[in-house]
Amino acid sequence: MPRVDVREMPPPERHTEIHDAFAEMDGGEVLEVVNDHEPKPLFYEMRAEVESFDPDGYEVEREGERTFVAQFPKQ
């Protein structure tokens, strides 16, 4: 499963990095994104702008005070 940890990246670079990683995946794969906050804005952005994103399969788990792991599936 492809994984992108953006916790140490400057915020303006995060969405670009995630979109690039998502674009490189094949259909049926899931991108795991590790973030320091729940990535709801990214979810809404992906749902609105990325046709191959499967919003029904999106999941997020809190793994600590500042660690969230989200699953972004590609159709």
Rank of each mutant, 00 (worst) to 15 (best):
K40Q: 11
M46P: 01
V30W: 05
P39C: 01
K74Q: 12
A48H: 12
M9N: 08
E17P: 00
E65K: 06
E61A: 12
M46T: 01
H37F: 14
R3K: 13
A70M: 12
E45I: 03
V69Q: 11
V6C: 04
E38Q: 14
H19S: 12
E63T: 08
V6G: 05
M9I: 14
I18C: 00
A21S: 04
A70T: 11
R3I: 13
R47W: 13
V60C: 06
D56M: 09
P2Q: 13
H37G: 07
N35H: 10
N35K: 03
G28T: 04
E32D: 07
E51M: 05
E32F: 07
K74V: 12
G57C: 07
P41G: 09
A21C: 01
F53P: 02
R62Q: 15
R14G: 12
V4W: 07
H37I: 05
V60E: 02
L42C: 07
H15N: 03
T16L: 10
K40I: 13
F22K: 06
F43L: 14
T16A: 14
L42K: 09
M1V: 08
L42V: 11
N35G: 03
G57D: 06
P41E: 09
Q71S: 15
M9K: 09
A70D: 13
P41W: 11
M1F: 06
H19Y: 12
M1Y: 07
R7I: 13
E17T: 12
K40Y: 14
R47Q: 14
E49N: 14
P55M: 05
E8V: 04
E65H: 07
Y58W: 15
V4I: 14
M46I: 02
V60D: 02
M46Q: 01
G64Y: 15
M25G: 11
P2Y: 11
L31M: 09
M25T: 08
M1R: 15
F43A: 07
D5W: 08
E59H: 08
R66W: 15
V60H: 02
V50T: 03
E24H: 00
P41N: 11
K40L: 13
E49F: 09
A21R: 03
V69K: 14
R7D: 09
P73L: 05
L42I: 11
I18G: 00
D54W: 07
R62N: 08
V34Y: 08
Q75A: 08
